[in-house]
Design a protein around this nucleic acid. Structure first.
Lengths: 344, 344
DNA sequence: GAAACTCATGTCATCGATGACATGAGTTTC
DNA sequence: GAAACTCATGTCATCGATGACATGAGTTTC
């Protein structure tokens, strides 16, 4: 690999002059500049960014830690971060945390050891105090869930408000027995979404029923199974609020397999092809790309102005996208079967 | 940030001894070792990986360059790479190339300047000769498309064979007018998939028809539009072979919007919820996670044994996943409307 | 003409960890 | 007892680029 010293030798100057030319320092004559540039071209010189970062003590990499890089939501977040980072000539280092909270710290420490310029994290554990030691070194921004035991920037979507709206939407369509399906309430986002659900019920003068609160699933398959249990109840729900898109991709197929697409469904979080399913699924859209962008912009802003004050706690509004899956419970199955349909 | 020298001062030894302790060098007494470890704990010492990488001249980062990190296929590939890399304590730097071939080189050069230990690339341009200069520095592995004007490792799926099988599948289901929808044939994968399609037609004694070869779309919306044009033909196709999952996510909604889910569809590449659509979509599955893993393993193998010989050209078999979308053309629309169906 | 200033170039220490080698004490071999 | 060996520890150069500062030639100011 060619170094500045190699270029310097060929151009008959010092390595420092090569550095000056490369970095557009004005203290170089035109003659010297051209001689050095010519040598760079001949040797196809490319700077060693590692040496540069090491010397400058500033890193041009943003670390991203999310539960799963392949999850559509987080893939979109990552894209949003990448685009913002690129505008500032920064790269992204990405890592998946998995779903075992006990591993969060060790995985994160593997990432931060690589001298990142900032960290964007969607946490999975209940305690982020281990990150306190790094806060002097680089900005840290939380997404998806707020930090626990750590004072840091965050951008989270309106879990409570979105769940409230989703449940109100179902109620407005005539549903009175509404189940909620999703993660354990130990997951902070699920807890807030449950609260929004309960608040909407209360607001409508409806009582919450214990057996309709079907939380605690770990994955899409478990959520599918929970659906089957719910629909087997003597007084089964007519509607399901799925508290997470990941579970929705289990709930929907389960309803379909049971030939129960008459059950209304609304998903917290959009997912691929939700608009093409039959019925197309109404969702509370989180706009993950935007989440990624604002998180990255905060990192960049803190790097650019270390002492400036920024609002730390940011709740991003979510948006109801109404599709077909929440039609009123008042419409009976036999009535809708007369609707013209193209055949398979 | 605490350095080894800080630890050394506290433990009353040299920085070199701290390094020995940290790296489990046996040439340290137990007494010294414990003294140093104690100092490390007290100072919460974390090594500067940048310094280490710089000194060692070996990087613990694999660069990944794909068209779009948010594309489900490439998100899954990335996951496969990440998991393999992590087993060797390597991180991943990820970048999206976009869809403008003219930008490939400059984007890649931004990535390789960061001293990566290897590069895995799904190229978008027609010429990768610009990467030749890097091949002495780190291993390069191509995925999805083979390299052009560069001799390098690649792992690509069986484009020809998969397309052949998809088209044969449609023919076996009675289809005689089969359209192919997708990218331009300037895209190498599309060219091979077209060849597979044409070979299957020829094998069945069918002539290919110019107006059924509907290639040249740039995105899902364009593919959707092409579908509409195809179905407006006097002698419209009864089946569509979508040459790319990305386009399938445009083709399917278009067919649905036209109430033409009677048109058979098979997609080269699976996509989220394809199995839950109505009709569920038959696909040629590429197993992206596996692609990512084998690519990463090649990088790791070349790092571990630089002079060892490995097969450079690797074509990964693909697999037909048969779902509902390719039912026979012999079943007339009016006949299948009597099939019992649950109502929306 | 001397002092002050400007400009272009170069020297050298630095970033933090580690490889190459030196060093001295203690032990073993002859 | 001298030479060879082993072990534990330390010194110092190195990785490649750049900040801090020095230096000398030329120009400007008084």
């Amino acid at each position: 690999m060619t170094t500045m010293q190699d270029v310097a030798t060929r151009a008959g100057v010092s390595a420092k002059t090569v550095s000056r030319v490369f970095n557009d320092d004005p203290h170089v004559t035109e003659d010297t500049r051209e001689r050095v540039q010519s040598a760079m071209r001949e040797l196809k010189y490319v700077p060693n960014m590692l040496a540069r970062t090491f010397r400058e003590g500033k890193s041009a990499v943003i670390g991203i830690a999310v539960p799963d890089v392949a999850d559509p939501f987080f893939a979109a977040v990552t894209k949003g971060i990448e685009l913002a980072a690129r505008e500032h000539d920064m790269a992204i280092v990405v890592t998946s945390l998995g779903d075992n909270p006990a591993l969060e710290q060790s995985i994160i420490e593997t990432t931060v050891r690589r001298q990142i310029g900032g960290l964007i994290i969607a946490p999975i554990a209940a305690d982020q105090s281990y990150l306190a030691r790094w806060q002097d070194s680089f900005p840290i921004v939380f997404i998806d869930r707020i930090p626990t035991k750590l004072h840091a920037d965050y951008f989270v979507e309106d879990d409570f408000g979105g769940a409230f709206e989703a449940t109100k939407h179902l109620i407005a369509h005539g549903h009175r027995r509404i189940a909620i399906v999703g993660d354990s309430t130990e997951v902070p986002t699920t807890k807030l979404r449950l609260e929004g659900y309960l608040a909407a019920l209360a607001d409508a003068g409806l009582k919450s029923e214990h057996e309709l609160i079907a939380l605690g699933s770990r994955d899409a398959d478990a959520a599918a199974h929970v659906c089957k249990t719910l629909l087997a109840l003597p007084d089964a729900p007519t509607a399901i609020f799925s508290s997470n898109a990941r579970f929705s991709t289990g709930v929907f197929p389960a309803l379909q397999a049971l030939n129960r697409t008459d059950i209304a469904l609304i998903s917290f979080g959009d997912f691929p092809m939700a608009d093409v399913l039959q019925p197309s699924v109404s969702v509370i859209d989180q706009n993950p790309r935007h989440v990624g962008r604002v998180a990255a912009e905060r990192i960049l802003a803190r790097i650019a102005a270390p002492t400036k004050k920024f609002r730390r706690k940011n709740v991003i509004p979510v948006k109801l996208i109404e599709r077909q899956s929440c039609q009123g419970a008042a419409v009976s199955p036999s009535q809708s079967s007369t609707t013209p349909r193209s055949s398979r």
